[in-house]
């Protein structure tokens, strides 16, 4: 059964069409990737799903429940966790406290949230940094903190916006292993925006390709990378 259903959503900013008539579905427990050149509308798509803006047209449903038009915190409560492409840590709070904030979404008490936060920190190898202020983390660490915080909210669907960007290949492999493990153990559904194809090919069973705000192709990764339309949008017409 589909956990996430996106039905022909569209959004324009001051007459500029950022996303137009995009539809796709995500099966419960799947890992899927959304790829496309810069400015293709991937992050806007995420923002439409996460409720940062309401779509001009179309609808989004999570587990059969319509979440279009809900505010971001309500969508998080409904079970969507997200990271931001430009990371947004709480700089003057410790790493632990950052994650506790996320964990409070599902925890009944602060003590429970702290335990959950420790668990997630260990999972993402941030436990050694728990008492550091988020402001003094390196960028790869901040990306992991961003993931830890979103994961601590105990989402059913995790939206990851370029969390591998700027990581070294070994770090990418580590992250891939973490996501695989979580997906395998808890059945967490993951949708990632990613330029690092190494991660996409290793993780995603399904890929959605956006270009100029429209979906131009979707399918298995191996199949998508051979699609002429995809090659064209990445490499220009001459390459085909």
């Amino acid at each position: 059964m589909a956990l996430l259903e996106v039905r022909s959503i569209g959004k324009s900013f001051r007459g500029l069409r950022a996303v137009h008539d995009v539809s796709f579905e995500l099966a419960d427990g799947a890992i899927a990737a959304m790829i496309g050149p810069n400015g293709a509308g991937k992050t806007t798509c995420f923002n439409l799903i996460a409720g940062v803006f309401a779509p001009d047209t179309g609808a989004v449903a999570l587990g059969g429940r319509r979440i279009t038009g809900l505010r971001p915190h309500e969508i998080c409560r409904a079970g969507v966790g997200r990271t931001f492409q430009v990371v947004k840590p709480f700089p003057q709070m410790t790493v632990l406290d950052n994650v506790v904030v996320g964990a409070l979404n599902a925890a009944a008490r602060v003590g429970d949230a702290e335990r959950e936060a420790w668990r997630v920190l260990e999972l993402l190898h941030l436990d050694a940094k728990s008492q550091t202020l988020a402001a003094s983390l390196t960028l790869p660490e901040r990306k992991r903190l961003e993931v830890a915080r979103a994961m601590a909210t105990r989402p059913r669907l995790l939206l990851l916006d370029e969390v591998m960007a700027g990581l070294r290949p070994t770090e990418v492999d580590e992250m891939v292993a973490v996501f695989r493990r979580i997906n395998h153990e808890t059945g967490l559904t993951i949708l990632l925006i990613e330029h690092v194809m190494r991660a996409v090919m290793a993780l995603a069973a399904h890929v959605v390709v956006l270009h100029h705000g429209e979906k131009i192709c979707e399918g298995a990764p191996a199949q998508v990378v051979r699609d002429p339309a995809v090659l064209e949008c990445y490499l220009g017409e001459e390459a085909v």
Binding site: H73, C76, T153
Partner: peptide, 12 residues
Amino acid sequence: EDEEAAQALGID
């Protein structure tokens, strides 16, 4: 610290 991030973590 960051209102948008707070909202994304389920805070009204």
